[in-house]
């Protein structure tokens, strides 16, 4: 099974059109608050509407706010975004403070980000300055002209030095040092 068969859509961390670099465009376009006028589950929603809704609409003139009273149904917030996403959120039995926070979340996010599985936690338009890897990067240029197979490229070159080789080197060193001593005596 591969990732494309998963229920959750995948995506990357994105900011639409570099939003906020020059000016900020609120991505939330419309918010609909559905509630019941009499049921206890909508208590927090009714409190929010009585106390904070007018201020919210005044502070955020870019967001269209709709109220939809409906009898004996649980309260719901629906947000619609510039990129066409629609977020449906049940706020049954939520308190006034919780609803204030959730509406703030809906206002500041840039789409339905909760239903996207992030493939990576970072994103860049320029993944590499040096250029992507190819099989030829970091290759020994001598390989281009080498006659393969050759023991130079095929033998293990990470083994420690053998005792025989060490003895031979010591012998070579000894030969050189005796020669220099002879020279000194001659002087």
């Amino acid at each position: 099974m591969s990732a494309k068969n998963l229920f959750l859509n995948s995506g990357f961390v994105r900011a639409p059109l570099q939003n906020g670099v020059g000016r900020y465009v609120c991505q939330l376009q419309r918010i609909v608050l559905k509630f019941c006028k009499s049921h206890g589950g909508s208590r927090g929603m009714r409190d929010f509407i009585e106390q904070d809704l007018v201020d919210f609409a005044k502070h955020h003139p870019g967001v269209v706010v709709y109220l939809k009273p409906r009898r004996h149904r649980s309260p719901v917030i629906v947000g619609e975004y510039l990129n066409g996403d629609r977020v449906w959120m049940n706020v049954h039995n939520k308190t006034h403070e919780e609803i204030t926070k959730w509406i703030e979340v809906l206002r500041t996010q840039q789409g339905d980000i909760a239903s996207v599985r992030l493939r990576k936690y970072q994103y860049t338009d320029h993944p590499s300055i040096q250029g992507p890897w190819t099989p030829f990067t970091f290759k020994d240029p001598e390989l281009n002209t080498a006659e393969l197979p050759s023991s130079k490229f095929g033998a293990n070159n990470r083994l420690p030095m053998s005792a025989t080789e060490q003895l031979r080197l010591m012998f070579e060193k000894q030969k050189i040092s005796t020669k220099t001593e002879d020279l000194k005596i001659a002087e």
Binding site: K139, L143, F153, A155
Partner: peptide
């Protein structure tokens, strides 16, 4: 175009 190094000395 490439050679894999052996693990043991011949």
């Amino acid at each position: 175009s490439s050679q894999i190094r052996q693990s043991r000395l011949v």
